[in-house]
Structures are given as structure tokens and as C-alpha cells.
């Protein structure tokens, strides 16, 4: 099979899988939030509300696509696509299962995979940032300014929490990192790193309790206040796809990727990967149902004064231990 065909087939399948999981992640979130608030959640469209995503998509597509008079038309229209593209493109290098006989699950097996993920992930903020700025309206602007500050302060701690894993695994390839966890998952030696990663990942995806970027109590809807219809939908998809991405990364770096726990190898590795990602997704929804939004200055203080020093300490301790034992 020629390379381009293989890439094309994988891309189409991936796109389908990611969009479907987005749709049902959204439904699951609404259901779980409902249950935690003693509501049944969406249950009208289709059996058990299973067709709700289709109804939502139809609604968003039929809505009018508004552009404010004060907006910068080009950037305003481009921003959702930047968000979505960067959110999707990470999946090109995420391995969902063990590669066998030269065949990889990911579209590209990049040897600096983790760096590429960081690079693409940090591009994602441009969508939010430009979208908020180009709206030509004050609340979106405040949202995007917050987004920038939040990204900078939390991405540092996030990257540092990666480095601990990199030191233990001795490789930046995602395949290599997962293979290094065949015996035990990095969540055990890198427990602090894992906690830091989970917290910063919530902040990176702008989810509650770190959803200062949207903060509907203060900023109407933050960066996407002016967006409507399908463009709002794109931002919405990007948010959930980002959630899935950070869940995938957490699974790959700290929870052994496709490695089965307790030698339960009769369940295939891909299934384990999906189960672990689903657990993370549930955790994010659970957090959203539980914690109130942080105040902006507390968010910054927490990022710079707690997470960053902690991540640095974790990195130093890991480095020393590996240097002496490894």
C-alpha cells in the first residue's frame, strides 16, 4: 500500500473516531453532570438520548452565522478553524495500541512525539486568543487575554511534569515511553508529576474549575461570546477534542498506554487505552460537577507559586534519583 493511501485511510478513520467520541463525550458529560445534580440529563432524542449529538449538530448548522460589525472579519472567521485543526492534528501521532510488524496505529510514529504534542498543543491557544481578539468586543477580549496568561503559566508546569517521565523512559517517542511502562506505570514513580499534569491539563483545556477563559458568570461566554452557529460548534468540538487529547497523553505518559494492568492481557491493548481515556474523561466531568471556578488571581498564584515550584522539585528529585540508581 502506498504511503499516501495508508495515511489517507488512517486519517479518515481517525477523524470519524475522534468526532464520534467528541459527540458522545459531550452527551456523557451532560448525562453525568445531570446525574450529579439529580437530573436525568438529555433523554428525549432517541433512546436514552443517544441521538442528542445529531440533534445538536443539526441545530448548530441551521443557526445564523453572525459576524459583529467591529470584528476583524478574516481572523474572526479563521480562529475556530485554528482551534479545531490544532486539536485534531495531535491525533496524527498518538499511538492507540502496540505497533506490530512495522505497522503503527498512529499516522506517524515520530521519534520526538512528546515534543510535537507540546508544540501543537501550544498552538491551540491561538484559536482562542485570536478569536477573542478579533471579535472586537470586550468580554471575548478579556477571555482571550486570560487564556494567554493561563496558557503561559500552566504550560510551564505541564512541560516540567513531562520531563520527569522523559528522564525515566529515556526517550521522547510515545511508543518508547509506553514500552518503558511495561513493568510499572509511571504514575507510581512520578506520582507528583502525574498530579501536576492532571491539574495543568484541566487548565490547558480551559475546563472547570479553571475555565476562566469562558467564565460565564463574569465574561458572558468569554472568548466565544460573539460566535454562533457552526463556528461556535467548531470551538466546542475543539474543547472536547482537546479534553480527549490530554486524556490520551495522561494515559500514554502516566498510565501505561495500551499496557494491561495486572496481566489482564485477554482484553486487547486498544481497549485498555480506550478504557483509560474514558476514565480520565469521566474525571474531568466529575471535576466540573464538583469544583467552583477559581478566582483569576488565585489561579495565577496557584500556577506560579505552587505548581511550578512543585514541578521543578519533582524534576530535580527524579533527575538525582535516576542519576544515582539508573
Amino acid at each position: 500500500m502506498p504511503l499516501w493511501l495508508e495515511v489517507l485511510i488512517k486519517s479518515v478513520i481517525l477523524l470519524f473516531v475522534v468526532v464520534t467520541s467528541f459527540a458522545y463525550a459531550m452527551l456523557a458529560e451532560r448525562k453525568i453532570l445531570g446525574w450529579m445534580q439529580l437530573r436525568p440529563g438529555p433523554n428525549r432524542v432517541g433512546p436514552w438520548g443517544l441521538l442528542q449529538p445529531a440533534a445538536d449538530a443539526a441545530k448548530l448548522m441551521l443557526k445564523e452565522d453572525l459576524t459583529p460589525e467591529t470584528a476583524d472579519p478574516l481572523l474572526y472567521k479563521l480562529a475556530p478553524f485554528i482551534s479545531l485543526l490544532t486539536a485534531f492534528s495531535v491525533y496524527a501521532i498518538i499511538p492507540f495500541g502496540a505497533s506490530a510488524s512495522g505497522q503503527t496505529w498512529a499516522i506517524g510514529n515520530v521519534n520526538a512525539g512528546i515534543l510535537l504534542i507540546l508544540a501543537i498543543g501550544s498552538l491551540g491557544v491561538y484559536g482562542i486568543c485570536l478569536g477573542g481578539w478579533a471579535s472586537g468586543s470586550k468580554y471575548p477580549l478579556l477571555g482571550s487575554v486570560r487564556s494567554t496568561a493561563q496558557m503561559i503559566s500552566y504550560e510551564l508546569a505541564m512541560s516540567l511534569s513531562f520531563v520527569g517521565v522523559l528522564i525515566l523512559a529515556g526517550t521522547t517517542s510515545l511508543d518508547g515511553i509506553v514500552n518503558a511502562q511495561a513493568r510499572w506505570w509511571f504514575v507510581l514513580p512520578q506520582f507528583v508529576g502525574c498530579i501536576i499534569y492532571v491539574i495543568t491539563a484541566v487548565a490547558e483545556t480551559n475546563r472547570a474549575p479553571f475555565d476562566l477563559v469562558e467564565a460565564e458568570t463574569e465574561l458572558v461566554a468569554g472568548f466565544h461570546t460573539e460566535y454562533s452557529g457552526l463556528r461556535f460548534g467548531l470551538f466546542f468540538i475543539a474543547e472536547y477534542v482537546n479534553m480527549l487529547t490530554v486524556s490520551c497523553i495522561a494515559t500514554l505518559l502516566f498510565f501505561g498506554g495500551w499496557n494491561a494492568p495486572l496481566h489482564l492481557t485477554f482484553i486487547p491493548g486498544v481497549a485498555w487505552f480506550v478504557i483509560k481515556v474514558a476514565c480520565f474523561m469521566f474525571f474531568y466531568m466529575w471535576l466540573r460537577a464538583t469544583l467552583p471556578r477559581l478566582r483569576y488571581d488565585r489561579l495565577m498564584a496557584f500556577g506560579w507559586k505552587v505548581l511550578l515550584p512543585l514541578a521543578t522539585l519533582n524534576l530535580v528529585v527524579t533527575a538525582i534519583v535516576v542519576a544515582y540508581t539508573g
Binding site: 446525574w35 450529579m36 466529575w286 471535576l287 464538583t290 469544583l291 505552587v306
Partner: peptide, 27 residues
């Protein structure tokens, strides 16, 4: 309280418990 993981865990356990409560909604 912000830096108290115990309080956060307690909150998480409360919301988790609520998931299995009987819902009063009438369809």
C-alpha cells in the same frame, strides 16, 4: 481550603454519591 486536597476529595465523593441517588424528575 484552596490548597486542601482533603476538602476537594470530600467534594468529589459527594458528587459521586449523588450520581446514584434517586432523581425526582418526572418525565
Amino acid at each position: 481550603h484552596l490548597y486542601n486536597p482533603g476538602a476537594i476529595l470530600k467534594g468529589l465523593s459527594i458528587t459521586f454519591g449523588f450520581m446514584f441517588r434517586k432523581r425526582p424528575t418526572i418525565p
